[in-house]
Simulated scan of single mutants.
Amino acid sequence: MDGQRISDEDLARQIRDGNEPAFEALVHRYHRPLLGYLHRMCHDYHLSEEAAQECFTRFYLTRARYKYPKPLKPYLYAIAANCLKDYLKSAYARRVIVHDPAPGMGSGRVAAESQAPFDVCHGAGDRGDPQDEAVRRLERREVVEAIARLPYTYREALVLRFYQGLTIREISQALEVPEGTVKSRLFTAVQRLKESIGDAARPCDGPKRTRRGECK
């Protein structure tokens, strides 16, 4: 089955009706993006993989609840976000230390990785968005480290927007918060990144840049 020829929502409807190849196509389509999102949030590859598998399992077991043509992307990310929070709670209970866990999971820390084991930096959003432009001007290592230091709710919104390419509406649906709240979290997240990294987030006064994109 060529899952790329049909929409996410049509795939979900076919899965709901018992079409196994449709489920395989959905996993093929979303495994990498969801894994990237989960890893950006917890910086633990094995935990991310477990949460991703659990996400697909939960979707399949509750497939009858899907109401066509409800947008599938935010629906899946909502499941993934909940799976990760459940896994982080479990990890914390086993004394696995995590960085700034989701609300209600205590406190902890994990070192920010300079680069994920796979490329998750895609779908950076619409060109011309001032927030997108600010993030694009940052060094990759600095971005990863600064994002890891953000409070969970800000990091969550920022990763979904700039790394996973979700729209404001999709993030609102995935996190079940108003669009205004999403915009506020994104604004605050970007401002904190600028404060954390400093001049790396600011445009050059002149047109000259180094090969690495730094201002001269």
Rank of each mutant, 00 (worst) to 15 (best):
4 Q>M: 02
154 Y>G: 05
73 K>N: 00
45 Y>S: 03
128 G>C: 07
33 P>N: 11
37 Y>N: 06
119 D>A: 09
153 T>L: 14
102 A>V: 06
181 T>Q: 12
196 S>G: 08
41 M>C: 01
196 S>L: 07
152 Y>Q: 09
191 Q>K: 11
197 I>V: 15
143 V>H: 00
7 S>I: 03
153 T>A: 14
194 K>F: 04
149 R>D: 04
14 Q>S: 05
77 Y>G: 02
32 R>C: 00
11 L>A: 01
174 A>E: 08
11 L>G: 03
109 R>M: 07
71 P>K: 00
28 H>K: 14
197 I>S: 07
65 R>N: 09
214 E>Y: 12
113 E>Y: 10
105 M>K: 11
72 L>R: 02
119 D>W: 10
1 M>Y: 09
203 P>D: 08
79 I>N: 06
86 D>L: 10
95 R>E: 15
80 A>D: 06
23 F>H: 04
174 A>D: 12
166 L>M: 15
8 D>I: 02
12 A>T: 01
90 S>R: 14
112 A>W: 09
120 V>K: 09
150 L>N: 08
32 R>K: 13
209 R>C: 06
47 L>P: 02
212 R>Y: 09
88 L>S: 15
68 Y>F: 12
34 L>M: 13
149 R>K: 11
120 V>E: 15
148 A>F: 02
112 A>D: 04
124 A>V: 09
161 R>V: 11
162 F>Y: 14
141 R>M: 01
18 G>F: 06
130 P>W: 11
26 L>Y: 13
84 L>V: 10
204 C>G: 00
138 L>H: 00
110 V>F: 09
